[in-house]
Amino acid sequence: MPVSPPPLKGLPLNALRAFEAAARLGGFAAAATELGVTAGAITAHVKTLEEALGAPLFERHARGVRLTALGQRVLPDFVEAFDRLGLAVQTLRAEAAPRQVHIATLPAIAQLWLSPRLPAIRAAAPEIAVSITAMEAPPDLKRAPFDLNLFFREDNLGRLVSADEIFPVCAPQLAADLVHPRDLAQVPCLSDAVWADDWQLWAEVAAPGWSFAPRGPVFSLYALAVEETVNGAGVLVGHEPLVAQQLATGALVAPFGARRRLRRTLRLWSARPLRPGSAAARVADWLSA
């Protein structure tokens, strides 16, 4: 009589994913943010996995968690496995929807640099649908479902799209009273919460030795700060790629000649090679031209 033993029960994929994310990112809260679940869900998944294995993967402490020796040994294999899975999923998405392109970028880049270029892309290739997701930091493209990444970077990853030079900009009606950088002390100076050191970086080249402390509103959205500058609310440090359109139309002017080129540049990249002639490759060519 043939023997049919019950199949060996596998480990739950969601639990393995929770372990890998928590181990790679160094905590349950960070893993929850990446996976879009609660920290309690990560805790439950990891506990289920540890119970199934009969061995702990993390040491719990008052300040967080730390991998056990077992967890440290197996983590590299799981990182590689989920990286490969993520890339395979991206390939599947691209093959299933070859005319859709998903771009991840900063909110300011999305609104001020990318959005004005979309009509030309639609006119040149109406069959391509471009989706944009604005986020404050680049995603892990090996895991996230994006075809292209467009962010400021200080390395040479991907394609150079534009240099980043900074200099004060304002509405034309304010420029007449701005002759010397020290005249900025008499007008509101708008700031961006993320690029909080812009004014000091520019002042170092415009007036060396001048300790300038801007007085004026602070915005968490750079695009909103640009809009308020156009409205005459004050002077803002402009990032050349992001204010080029307003300068071209005359909505903004640069009252001073001094500029500072930053180390970072606007760069476009993908986690996997773009197939020549594909929708993503065509969009990348347009954006980096």
Rank of each mutant, 00 (worst) to 15 (best):
P172Y: 15
L11I: 02
V235K: 06
P139A: 15
S131A: 15
P273N: 09
F151S: 06
H102D: 05
F167V: 00
S211H: 12
C189I: 00
A18V: 02
G232I: 04
C189Q: 01
L236Y: 09
P116M: 15
L13Q: 05
R275L: 11
R84N: 05
P5F: 13
L8F: 03
Y222R: 04
T133W: 14
P276M: 14
L221Q: 11
R93Q: 06
P116S: 15
D147V: 03
D192T: 00
A108G: 01
R267S: 09
L25E: 02
G64F: 12
P2D: 06
G71S: 10
A22P: 01
A271S: 10
L148T: 00
G277L: 11
I103L: 06
R215E: 00
A175S: 15
E127V: 01
V243F: 13
A203G: 02
L252R: 07
R73F: 08
C170K: 06
Q245H: 12
G209N: 08
T229Q: 09
P188Y: 08
N231I: 01
G250E: 12
G234K: 05
D197E: 13
E240A: 10
F58L: 11
A29T: 03
A22N: 08
L242W: 12
L268Q: 04
E95D: 06
D198F: 14
T265R: 14
H61F: 06
G257L: 07
R261E: 11
V226N: 08
P217C: 03
A69R: 09
W269D: 04
L114R: 07
E240R: 14
F58P: 01
V205G: 04
R264M: 12
R66H: 08
V187P: 01
G27H: 09
A32L: 04
G158A: 13
